[in-house]
Design a protein around this nucleic acid. Structure first.
Lengths: 195, 195
DNA sequence: GCTGTGCCTTGATGTAGGATAAGAACTTTA
DNA sequence: TAAAGTTCTTATCCTACATCAAGGCACAGC
């Protein structure tokens, strides 16, 4: 049950058995079905969630009413709206399951409690956040200075498991292009025998 | 000397006089001239720097040899390559002064020391990082789903002091467009009397 | 006073990817 | 098993922005 998430934490810092038990006591299991929401625009994000099994997407709805996917998350990833969660203010984002998904969630109070009770906790989440920041920065760079084709190739290289479980429609939205464009790019790559 | 940076910290958490003194003892003052580098591609980022006075830019050189500016930083901001600093591995980024700049810098060892000696420190830097993450996420969103004109208007609204001290060339690079395009956008906005 | 040099503007032309539409293939539901 | 979505593809035309090229203005150094 907690095996994977414990491994996740202990990669960043070490914990006693007691500390891990306290941590577990603050987690709740949550199961949601495909197409159900973990968070909707306008709601305050009341959780940070660790994915035990399944796949979710985090996205905006833009001014034209189109989805803009900011992040996919699969097994062993965390998902939340950090801004909404940390300031406890309404979110602009949706988080929706792309498959039936099993999560371990922690609420704001519990997380603050853990920060006080287990000093290393602050460190672990800071380190996780640092890594997320670096990934996001490199994604911004790619969006600005690479073509859609290069971004697609980078995406399937970086996250090879995701194209197999997520429709192209969603991947196009993540790459910031239309599904039609992605289709054209893929057909070019096939002609060029790159994929 | 330390007045502003102390205010910066105490906005996130409270500190005793002793703690602040320990913090100050680990900071070094650094002055760099316009066009000089704080960090070059290939170097390990050995600092996080708080800007007392001045202005810097952080950028990549892309595959065409063009600058892509990720961030400007002025008074009361921190600047660093978080990825390179935290993993102590070579950076892909340049950080360069746009004006003569006065900084307070802290090195990796000192920061780790402070994290251990002053528990709230971990919290302060986690909170700062959270805010940076949210800003970056909204910038990615804007890059994907707003036009260059909308991004420019948002930029001058969000950072009104920067257009007055930074050449348009640099702002274009931050917005992910050519200087020519920015010039045309500005001339359209003038015609429309928006600015 | 000239002559660079850096920065901004304007114009002509090219191109990646968007918008729209419509059909094919595959899934879900009834 | 038919009906009704979804998803993917292809084709046409269109738009935002890039690229290339030329010229203007302000300021620094000689």
């Amino acid at each position: 049950m907690f095996q994977e998430i414990d491994k996740h934490l202990t990669r960043c810092s070490s914990f006693t058995e007691d500390q891990l038990e306290l941590f577990h006591s603050r987690l709740k299991t949550k199961n949601i079905h495909k197409k159900m929401f973990l968070l909707r625009q306008g709601e305050i994000c009341k959780f940070e969630a660790y994915i035990v099994k399944g796949c979710v997407k985090k996205y905006y709805i833009d001014d034209n009413g189109d989805e803009v996917i900011l992040q996919f998350a699969v097994e062993d990833w965390w998902i939340s709206d950090i801004g909404s969660f940390s300031e406890q203010k309404p979110s602009n984002l949706f988080i929706e399951a792309l498959e039936d998904t099993e999560l371990l969630v922690i609420d704001y109070e519990s997380k603050e409690h853990l920060y006080h009770a287990i000093p290393q906790m602050e460190r672990v989440f800071r380190l996780m956040l640092q890594r997320s920041y670096v990934v996001l920065e490199s994604r911004l760079y790619a969006t600005v200075s690479h073509t859609a084709e290069a971004r697609y190739l980078d995406f399937i290289k970086r996250y090879p498991s995701i194209p197999q479980r997520v429709p192209q429609l969603q991947i196009a939205s993540y790459l910031g292009i239309t599904p039609e464009s992605l289709s054209r790019i893929r057909s070019n790559l096939h002609k060029k025998k790159v994929i």
